[in-house]
């Protein structure tokens, strides 16, 4: 009986000390990498911005208020922020940062909008199923063939609906602001 207790005690001590050490190590590495990961997210947004309007400068609209849960045709989407894109003092258009979820995951993307309507679209992050054709096929076709969003088809129909909803939410906001002004 006494032997048993000893064995269990030893097992418990070893296991919990391994756990404690591993938690400590992970915590320490997290401290080192935390800032870089946050910086990477900013970089990803900047890269996506540059993808929408090349060589433009972007100013975040500080008056823009975050809108959450905007009900669209199929999904509820969020409008996170808005940027003004300028090239040598000339206003090229606006870029909306939007996010939305479907049952496969979450998409954060940027939509360029100007007088001509919805422009280029670029993903900041996409946690849709691995191997989803959304970015490679859908966005590529849309951005390169300059078609209407509704005309582009791809295998990932469920994700494409989400992208459409997000882009349209941004367009609606843009139009209502234009009328307001």
């Amino acid at each position: 009986m006494k032997e048993n207790v000893k064995i269990y005690l030893r097992a418990a001590i070893v296991l919990s000390s391994i756990g404690a050490v591993s938690a400590g190590v992970i915590g320490a590495v997290n401290l080192i990498t935390k800032d870089r990961i946050a910086q990477n997210e900013v970089n990803a947004t900047n890269k996506a911005l540059a993808d929408i309007y090349e060589n433009a400068s972007f100013v975040e609209d500080s008056e823009f208020e975050k809108q959450e849960g905007v009900q669209m045709d199929n999904f509820k989407v969020n409008l996170l922020s808005r940027y003004e894109a300028k090239k040598e003092e000339e206003l090229l258009g606006f870029v909306y940062k939007t996010s939305g979820k479907n049952s496969y995951g979450e998409i954060v993307m940027l939509v360029g909008i100007n007088e001509q309507g919805i422009g280029r679209i670029s993903f900041v992050s996409d946690t849709q199923t691995y191997g989803s054709t959304l970015e490679d096929e859908y966005l590529y076709k849309y951005n390169n063939n300059k078609r209407e969003l509704d005309d582009v088809s791809c295998g990932a129909t469920y994700g494409a609906k989400l992208v459409k909803d997000m882009a349209k939410a941004a367009e609606n906001d843009y139009l209502s602001r234009k009328e307001g002004k």
């Binding site: 190590v25 590495v29 997290n30 990498t33 870089r36 990961i37 990477n40 970089n43």
Partner: peptide, 12 residues
């Protein structure tokens, strides 16, 4: 987890 954190930081 360490690999995950490091990859996320240095090779996003």
């Amino acid at each position: 987890t360490l690999v995950k954190l490091l990859t996320n930081a240095f090779m996003p």
